Simulated scan of single mutants.
Amino acid sequence: MQLKPISQQVVAIVGASSGIGRDTALKFAQRGAKVVVAARSEPGLKSLVEEIQSLGGVAKYVIADVSDFEQVKAIADQTVAEYGQLDTWVHAAATGVIAPFEKITPEEFARVVDVTLMGQVYGAMAALPHLKQTGRGALIHISSMEGRRSLPLQSPYSAAKHGLEGFLDALRVELQHEKWPISVTSILPATINTPFYNKVGTKLGVKPTGVPPYYQPSLVADAILYAAEHPTRDFVVGDAGKILDFIQRISPLLADSLLLAIAFQGQRTNEPKSEDAPNNVFEPITGYDKVEGDFRNLSIPSFLESLDMNPPLKWGALAFAALGIAALVGLWGRNDI
């Protein structure tokens, strides 16, 4: 499957007013792509388009609530009407309520699922006809490591991300069966320093935080741009996410014990915050139309992404590790005789 160079692409980015989506839009534009950005926050979209244009890029914006299919469809339709094609669809919109399950209302749970899962489904529904018309392209969906391993206090968000993983697995194989050269990628970030934790609802009595360590949004944006040119099934961003994924695969009980020890206190700051404080669950809120959140001081580097972006190096490292393990096993066997 061959994808176009980014400089020749038209890219729609949903959930672009802040965080990962905003950084991704800037990087696509800097690489020469024409971009259409979408979100509920018109001030955030306006400032983003102005920033892109000031850098010499080409961008338009569409206001949309992803829980409404017709509004999502309008993003794809207006992209093609403006630029004549759609090559890559990036879907990053999400919301959440960080609270014990028993304190979450049915309406709140449903809303998180509507935005964080159904919004992604609507995005694929809206984009696919245009990608098929183009003849190739990429669907890039921003999932989460919570699609592989749920966190306590985030039951609706984790449920939505697990649902997204199931949806993408099914869709990917259907497209392969129909022989469409359309790449379907799941990007699974670990804890990322975006305004997400400023904007979501919470009933912890304090401002929430992700379980450290944090990683910077640029790592996720770089993975997205890589997937736009290189067909990629899934991409875990952040070394801690890769470690958690490994633990979950070998022993879910061990993962349970780990999260029991760190995830409850690890999602709380010392800053008081009322559950009545403004949040973006049902309506957009102002003041957070930026890439980074408040936790740069907790951010650390991540190193394993370079392996994912360099398959020969990755397989070489795995082969070297396998040979090392085989040698150790052989040595142990001789000593045991």
Results as ranks from 00 to 15, higher is better:
33 A>C: 03
39 A>I: 05
63 I>H: 10
150 S>I: 11
229 E>G: 03
107 E>T: 11
102 E>R: 14
240 A>G: 10
118 M>A: 08
80 V>Q: 11
194 T>V: 01
21 G>L: 07
304 L>G: 10
112 V>R: 06
32 G>C: 00
192 I>G: 09
277 A>N: 11
211 V>K: 01
102 E>A: 12
276 D>R: 14
313 L>T: 06
290 K>D: 09
247 I>K: 04
233 R>V: 13
292 E>L: 11
26 L>Y: 02
87 D>E: 05
188 L>N: 15
53 Q>L: 10
334 R>C: 11
4 K>C: 09
141 H>V: 13
204 L>D: 07
327 A>P: 08
266 G>W: 04
42 E>K: 11
219 L>M: 15
107 E>V: 07
45 L>T: 03
8 Q>Y: 00
104 I>K: 09
287 G>E: 08
283 E>F: 14
106 P>M: 03
32 G>A: 03
35 V>C: 05
303 F>A: 12
240 A>V: 07
138 A>S: 15
215 Y>E: 09
212 P>E: 07
140 I>W: 06
242 K>L: 12
89 W>P: 08
335 N>M: 14
335 N>A: 15
304 L>K: 08
292 E>H: 08
149 R>P: 08
29 A>E: 04
337 I>V: 15
214 Y>E: 05
115 V>F: 04
299 S>E: 09
197 Y>Q: 15
56 G>T: 04
149 R>T: 12
271 E>Q: 13
171 L>E: 08
234 D>K: 15
166 G>D: 06
309 M>K: 13
44 G>A: 05
53 Q>A: 14
168 L>C: 03
144 S>G: 05
34 K>R: 15
18 S>K: 14
325 I>P: 00
